[in-house]
Write a protein that binds this DNA or RNA. Structure first.
Lengths: 204, 204
DNA sequence: AGTATAACAGACTTAATGGTCTGCTAGATA
DNA sequence: TATCTAGCAGACCATTAAGTCTGTTATACT
């Protein structure tokens, strides 16, 4: 039974540092040897567990990336209270981890989308699926906010959702070295401003 | 004198198709040979005109990219009338070219920023300089909008500017195959919504 | 205890890439 | 007209990458 554990452990280690390096240096600019060197493993180990670099990457997307995004950006939005407030808090939290140079998986996703766009349609599908889940959950939360009396009924939930994702991905693209803190502050401030127009107003 | 012209022509051709391929496939994923093959030129031609692939790319950024962004995204904002309206129209135009799969240079810029972030600080500086010019001009336009009575005085121009750039870069990242048209529509709609709260209101 | 095999090590192959270098040719120049 | 050189062709080199293959070792199983 010990072999099963070792197998799982090695695969996990490969995937974890794989994601980290792919994020830092890009997929095409990270060699399998780079990952193996980091872990003091050999080619034999890698190709014993994974068929190819591409299949390895897809396994990372489905196992690590999707789960992280779900727990960090999707799950926190669900719930009973005001969705607008929750979105602001959730985005602010995510940007905080980004500010401290930790892995912000929402951004990791958009990085990969940029890198694979037009090059690898297969991988693009996996990445866009994650985006769709994110979008659908935002729409659901906004709609629920309407029925619960938190969100104005006149808004277009789908448009708001994609505008939110767009702006988040964009601000993360701009958050590079040095300017992160100010950018985060400005962004959250404007997000609140944007939300003001769609808060439910007591019909006097 | 004919040689001078030929020199210029060859360099231009290299830079133009270089930018196109770098955009389509990424810098690291595009070989010098790819570009030369497209033009039926040889290694000798390339390294006669440019010292290295990197120097070649920088020349593209400074000559082509900067000018295109300036004429497409910065210049159209300047002027006497309502800046908010101008921004909406300008962004909509840029997204239209993107929708038809032409080169949208604002997005090309953000693509490169994503690709070089953390890898090549030298190139990053050139790219970020363009962003700064864009941002500064947006801020200027917004401030002028205040004094001209088009924009509410209570807004934070710098925050609005970076929010605009963020959202634009983000929506362009998401505009991939198929969904472009809807995404553009939603985006412009929400941009107008966002702007509503900052239009100058006649003090009755 | 003996054997089979999972898990890995690492040399090797093949293909691509950035860059160099020598040589050719047409047009500029004296 | 003779020569020189800008502009380019393309063989060549060094390096790096993904992927293969054979050999080794520790552990599971009978």
């Amino acid at each position: 039974m010990e072999k099963q554990l070792k197998r799982m452990a090695t695969m996990q280690r490969l995937q974890t540092t794989g994601l980290e390096l792919f994020y830092q240096k890009g997929y095409y600019n990270t060699s399998v040897d780079d990952i193996l060197k980091e872990l003091s493993l050999s080619k034999g180990a890698f190709y014993y567990h994974f068929q190819s670099k591409e299949e390895f990457f897809i396994s990372i997307v489905q196992n690590l990336l999707f789960r992280k995004i779900y727990s960090g950006l999707i799950e926190p939005i669900e719930g009973e209270e005001d969705p607008l407030n929750k979105i602001v808090l959730c985005f602010d939290n995510a940007l905080e981890t980004a500010e401290h140079n930790f892995l912000d998986y929402g951004f990791v996703l958009s990085n990969f989308i940029t890198e694979f766009n037009g090059k690898n349609p297969d991988i693009m599908n996996y990445l866009q699926d994650i985006l769709k889940v994110w979008e659908v959950n935002l729409v659901t939360a906004l709609q629920k906010g309407k029925t619960d009396g938190y969100v104005s009924r006149h808004i277009d939930s789908e448009a708001v959702a994609s505008f939110l994702i767009s702006s988040y991905i964009g601000v993360r693209t701009l958050m590079v070295e040095g300017n992160s803190k100010i950018l985060r502050y400005k962004y959250i401030q404007q997000l609140r401003q944007y939300f003001k127009s769609m808060e439910y107003k007591e019909p006097a």
